[in-house]
Design a protein around this nucleic acid. Structure first.
Lengths: 336, 336
DNA sequence: ATGAAAGCGCTAACAT
DNA sequence: ATGTTAGCGCTTTCAT
């Protein structure tokens, strides 16, 4: 059932049917009712495809994510999806698994499909990527970044203040009385992780605590790094009383490792995570952590994208979301 | 840049351009090369939207999920996405959060957008839902279900054998020497969970073990249920030596609860989960569990959907995927 | 080997 | 208050 058939049955013109479905005020209530009734009876619904071709708007956005198994992306996806759906948009899910080739193919698909906008998390910074991104911007397809964007470009981005988060987490441990605080981080060539480390170091400095290189472990976020970090700690003659880990998953692995080595958490050592994943409240001990507002990040990114699409504004906006310390059982006050 | 403009620049007809991009053999190599070159230069790519309207095929599928935070859905999503993308399809992500209203709206959106097919996990069984599903099938839009489908309908479905999985998990514990095995399950009105329980009971029977109602706890999958289950166990005079929990997340919560009550796992009591989530290997102790092949479920669902879409077959197919026992640290052999 | 033209389902300008 | 018509970008018959 399409508009032509329906118009025939309802004995009106296609234009009238169209106007009815677009709530045009010029149509009389009588015909409006009549058309709607017949449409319902015949299960007629206007084709989004035809509309898109005609209107040059698809009410579709692309969401580019490096991964979906990593448990912080589902929250972002959900936030984006919710705001999109309420606004009658639909999201095409693109996960490129850190593969350049997949990323390129998805960029092309999104271009071919005339998406109205793109939300992008996990920029790699490759030349090819930059080319695609510039292409979209030239064609007036807005892009909103999450976490980090293209360096040296006027961009719209939603993120947390990673420096402040690193600072805040460290400060919390200091306020708990800890004086020797180890730091376990991901790869420092990732901008946001470098910032977290900077925050950690600044907090130490501001509180006149020794900053000791041997307290820092950096490497990819994995169980291996967790083991490495624990091994490193065990060899230290002067052991830290707390560890700040910039990933909940790694923090959980570290807790496990430490427990296996006979440490009691938090009595022997405090552990502080970063992310606040759903699982973090379920493990033993429940993890104290710096919470990232994943859902909100998705929501805000989508809201910003909507503004860019619909209001045609080309503002360059940075939205900074708050992190929050969630105190649970893996940290405790010491000293006095 | 569209086909008309490109045709003009290349001094050929629109038909020729179209044929070039559809690899029509009638076009000479010379013009093919010429057109492709000019297309590249002007960054021309055929519009998927216009193609869709013309061809009545969108190379788009809808994926309906009840949730995305629940950690087994990301695996499914990933499996679907991978197979879709390799075949030049795109997936519209629809999460209805167990809300009937959202579900209906998404069904309508998918209809309006002429998706070529739908993958659906989490049927609720509501009348409205059934209406939509029938509508799609009537309009020849294939639907593949994951886990469970519509009762009394010829449907295409990908799932695991939940009875066998329940049986297998229980049997493993029996083979470890356990004679009193508690069972913690989700709501038994969910078909697949009922099946898992049936498998548990059958395994007990087949091994002439007492089946004791007081060993079973059922309720929604949550921390609350975990606590409830542990409380119940503590009151038992004859304690079980093992617990089989049909959800890793709940199993992890139960481990935490038990540890807080002073139990050592697996020395005092063995715990067996169900799912094999990424996190399950990281907790302490690492969880022995019945693994569901989430990724494969998504992949197989998408492959089946492709067959239905492209071969226009209307076979009614059930794909049964294997579960697997992953032995880790939370269970141990006892007795002899 | 290539071109001309109709039509996919819709909207918007213009006409009545 | 409603109808007529052209056109969005593409494919596909049918001609040449």
């Amino acid at each position: 059932m399409n508009i032509t058939e329906l118009a025939k049955i309802a004995q009106v013109s296609k234009a009238t049917v169209s106007m009815v479905f677009n709530d045009d005020e010029r149509i009389s209530d009588a015909t409006k009712k009549k058309v709607l009734k017949i449409a319902k009876k015949h299960n007629y619904r206007p084709s989004s495809i035809a509309k898109s071709l005609r209107n040059k708007k698809t009410r579709t956005i692309g969401l580019m994510l490096p991964d979906i198994i990593d448990p912080f992306f589902p929250g972002i996806l959900k936030g984006v999806e919710e705001v999109a759906m309420v606004n009658n948009y639909v999201v095409i899910f693109c996960s490129f698994d850190e593969q350049k080739e997949k990323e390129s193919i998805y960029f092309e698909m999104l271009q071919d499909r005339w998406v109205d906008g793109i939300i992008f998390s996990g920029v790699t910074g490759s030349e090819e990527e930059e080319g695609f991104i510039k292409g979209f911007i030239e064609r007036n397809i807005p892009i909103v970044f999450i976490d980090r964007g293209l360096e040296g470009h006027s961009i719209n981005i939603v993120k947390i203040d990673n420096f402040e988060a690193g600072y805040k987490g460290t400060k919390f441990l200091i306020d708990c009385g800890h004086r020797r605080i180890a730091f376990v981080n991901g790869p420092p060539d990732i901008y946001i992780l470098r910032k977290r480390r900077d925050g950690y170091i600044q907090a130490l400095k501001d509180n006149e605590l020794c900053f000791d290189d041997s307290l820092i472990t950096e490497g990819e976020f994995s169980v291996k790094t967790a083991k490495l970090a624990v091994d490193k700690l065990l060899e230290l003659k002067e052991k830290p009383t707390a560890i700040f880990v910039t990933s909940d998953l790694v923090a959980i692995s570290i807790q496990t490792e430490l427990q296996k080595c006979g440490f009691n958490i938090p009595d022997d050592i405090s552990v502080m995570g970063f992310d606040n994943l759903p699982i973090s409240s379920m493990v033993n001990p429940a993890l104290t952590t710096v919470a990232q507002p994943f859902l909100e990040m998705g929501e805000e990114a989508m809201k910003l994208l909507l503004a860019l699409i619909e209001d045609q504004v080309s503002l360059e906006r940075k939205i900074l979301l708050n992190t929050q310390i969630i105190v649970r059982e893996s940290t405790k006050k010491i000293g006095e």
